[in-house]
Design a protein around this nucleic acid. Structure first.
Lengths: 148, 148
DNA sequence: AATGATAATGAAAAACATTTTCAATAAGGA
DNA sequence: TCCTTATTGAAAATGTTTTTCATTATCATT
């Protein structure tokens, strides 16, 4: 649970208060290994903090996002899921069926980025590399009709 | 305008009808070099087809998207812009200020993908590589990167 | 421990974005 | 030209996110 503490300390350093709803959301996001929508977070967090409001989930995800601890996940069927942010040069590998997340590193895009920068005249600010696939658990079900 | 014809032919082959609203939207998307929201498309397309409804824009973008001709653009401040889809192994370079799009190629992620696939157990379906930056027009002059 | 300033909360309402419904229209084969 | 049916626009519905505001709770200061 050391990671939870770290997130809460960062929140505090930024001038935020540590509250019940925030603790519940942080605990949940720290250990989430599947992308979660605000409503997913809301539902799960209410078991720890039943008075939780959905608005607080939105607000807390925004703060965690500003702190770089959480990131919105981009998927072909929408972009309203959240996940622990990638650290350093990690990139996301995500299951397009169940949202299971894995992180990988090992690419080196710096040469490419330098080249594109000078060819295009753009000042490159960030890059985004993500792999979509089907995780092991979902593979036997690959040919089933997707859940609606 | 040969590209416009190609899009319309693909639409027709798919069993769709070629209509005024669709022609207006296709012409616009073919030559768009900035990411456009459905409302942007709506506004621009109405100059060619004043009766255009916003719903038709949504529907047409969806069809063009199914045909692989148009793609939703993912940006940190939202994912409701559209752009001509990348062809083949092209990837998108987008200005985070004005939405100006450029495409690049020259990466080879296949080795990385094979490695991640076997390490993670995921069956990799697709990959997304995108660079975010500031285009030349949006840069303060003193920071401009000269094009080579 | 009690106090007080104010940050954070939840509920309701508002603001957006997108989709569905449906009657009227128009595309394009017969 | 006719006829079938895909397409359209308007309105309503749906879904997501943000704003507003009165109440509550945190935590620095006593």
């Amino acid at each position: 649970m050391i990671e939870t503490e770290r997130w809460l300390e960062l929140l505090e350093e930024k001038g935020g208060r540590i509250t019940g709803p925030r603790k519940a959301i942080v605990e949940l996001m720290v250990k989430a290994d599947h992308a979660l929508s605000p409503v997913d977070v809301f539902d799960q967090a209410r078991s720890k903090y039943p008075k939780m409001g959905l608005v607080t989930v939105y607000r807390t995800l925004e703060i965690l996002s500003e702190l770089g601890l959480v990131e919105r996940v981009h998927q072909q069927d929408g972009c309203h899921m959240y996940l622990r942010a990638a650290n350093g040069h990690e990139h996301l590998l995500i299951c397009s069926r169940c949202g299971k997340a894995a992180y990988f590193s090992g690419d080196d895009l710096s040469v490419l980025i330098d080249r594109i920068s000078s060819e295009s005249g753009f000042v490159i600010q960030s890059h985004w590399l993500q792999l979509q696939g089907i995780c092991q658990k979902c593979q036997p079900k690959k040919f089933q009709t997707p859940i609606e």
